[in-house]
Design a protein around this nucleic acid. Sequence first.
RNA 1: GCCUCUGUAACUCAGUUCGUAGAGUGACAGAUUCGUAAUCUGUUUGCCGGGGGUUCAACUCCCCCCAGGGGCUCCA
Length: 681
Amino acid sequence: MIHSKDVEVHKNKEATTNPQEFEKDLIKMEGLVLVAFVSVEDQDTYDTEIIAKQGAEVIEDAILSITSFPDKIRQKNEEIREYNRKIEKEEKKGKPRKLKELILDRELYRVDKVLVYPWAHLSKFLSSDPRAMDVCPRIAGLLQEKGIESAYSPFGWYKSFKINCLGHELAEMYRDIKLYIQPEEHLESAKFKVITPDGKELDIKFDNEKNYIRLDEIKDLDFHLFLESELGSRRVDKGEEPIHIKNMKEFELIDFEPNTDSGNLRWYTKGVIMKNLIKRYTEDSLIDFGAILVDTPIMYTVKNDKLTAQTARFPARTYWVESGNDRYLLRFAGDFLQFDMLSNMNLKPQYFPLRLYEWEQYDFRREQEGELSGLRRLRGFVMPDFHTLCKDLDSAIVEFKNQYKLDRKLEEDLGIKSNLIFRTTQDFYEQNKDWIIELINSEGKPALLELWEDRYYYFILKFERTVLSAQDKSATLATIQIDVESSLEYIEQDGKKRQKYNIKFEDTDGKVKHPVILHNSPTGGLERILWGLIEIAERDIDTCVPGFKAWLSPVQIRVLTISEEQNEYGNKIMEELNQRGFRADLDDRDESLGKKIRRAEVDWIPYTIIVGGKEEENETISIRKRLIGEKFGAKKSTSKQINNISLEDLIEMLNEDTKGFPKYKLPKPFRKFSTKVYFRK
RNA sequence: GCCUCUGUAACUCAGUUCGUAGAGUGACAGAUUCGUAAUCUGUUUGCCGGGGGUUCAACUCCCCCCAGGGGCUCCA
């Protein structure tokens, strides 16, 4: 945008085969004119009405910035005077700041008129759609409606023009406007209840400051803390760093990466081991459950209207990639390409329920800076994503119940303890409360229920499993949604048809139907699983032994020698364990046993093997089995001692402990302390 | 995006009212050859996040930037 004194545009000759009809040969505007040069990009022609509205709003904002600028400077100067006064009185150190001055007379910070001028050269990603030429007239029209005198210059012509840039602080401005399809607004009319395991509904009430008032019927403090976190009750700001950040660094699992955008992390070897174990385990479980597997690209075009209808809902949170003369967006979920793929398939009735699984490495969401937090909220993350096409709502409910059990099993196996939330409409709850209560009952603890008057989202039911952190912060891991919208050809929104994916099949009765889709992130985001595991362990650190389950621990067994004389024997045992598919390392440092044991403790090693002279002589080992998740013993002991057993006995114990879970090798440099690679130390 | 706190040795952190830095851990060396949560002694290490400014003098005061945390908002 250029703020100009007077503007003149002469129409010369057609520049395109079908230029915009425009009778006048000369546009002459006198006074203080804001000239907005406009490029219409690839995605914008999805809906020229929306993009024109956004454009007009941005121009209005610009006008406001210009007109309010002298006032802003005046305010700023008051602050500076105050600051300087403090320095004079020696209340503050430093040197006085200079007052700001307006470049031009304040009368000139005014916009009388607007000229909207199509200017292709602002973008590499121009729209080739003929509708692009509607945008400038629409913007001018919208501004005119708001009482701002506006004109537009014709599209598709060679033109000569004269502008006279005023040259003040805001005389030149640039704005990038991304198409934004706003979700329909809805009133905050949700009601919250707690459902007890025996099916009693307790209404949640709030005080004047919107804080949740604790229910007398609930005795469990952790459940209150969960409700307080979920319901946004104001808590005392502890201002503490989340505990898992220390762990993720000290264990050398994951770390911040300063050489990229915030929220995109670096994984170290042990973190990669855990990542791959969780990946393999989830994948195995999903295959057993009946899923098929796909992998879809992480970036895609914005020129597909069907995708744009969904992706343009979060333009501010999208990463853009440019390549050649095109731009692409980095996916923030896998749904789009999966659904597009499903819409192109010849779906047959016998396929249902059709279960499709993708390990999304990575998804990208450009969250606002203040929202990022350790492993809990990231900009680049890994998410297992599972979608199921069901013939109809009834079969979707049957499938939901099965997947509910699946998710619960996965969490148990990982070692996650969670709280439950069901979010749905009042009607849906009334018609389905029996089985929902049955599920809550099977957990033996209460659940939070949110009820809406109408359905505002694509799902009619959203189920979440949330974890409470050491600092009483609740976050969702697994979630299942019943989506009754995405498979349709289109929906009505604000009186407009909005495209959906049009996923359909011809049923045995000959009718074309759209399936109901379950969205399920069976474990939740991978980083968040690690967040949960560490936070859960740290939450109970005063009463319970912290640790990861044996199958998931980066190092499952540590061999300790009492003196260097046993290093050879210890090494043999360590090698044997690795060959048998377990992750074992050897602490062969010349240190006291006490020190080695302490190290194994702080490393949360599930099995610590001790070999001394006695063991070597008898060809046996002694074991400290860490009682992960159990209450501390006497004198805060963390383990159970098993003396003088054979290596085969240990392997049997390990097989029992990790039965049904995937195996993953420990890279060789990590197997001996004397040659161990550290990333941070 | 807004508000706010933090950044000091490889790691964790201390550093008063400006006067060019200290502890523990680690690493290294020596002693010890050890039986279930830290053996003893010694040595080692610094662009005090980066840039600019104020000052005779800046880790310390001011401004900008970078990175991390917390809060608001947000959470497909």
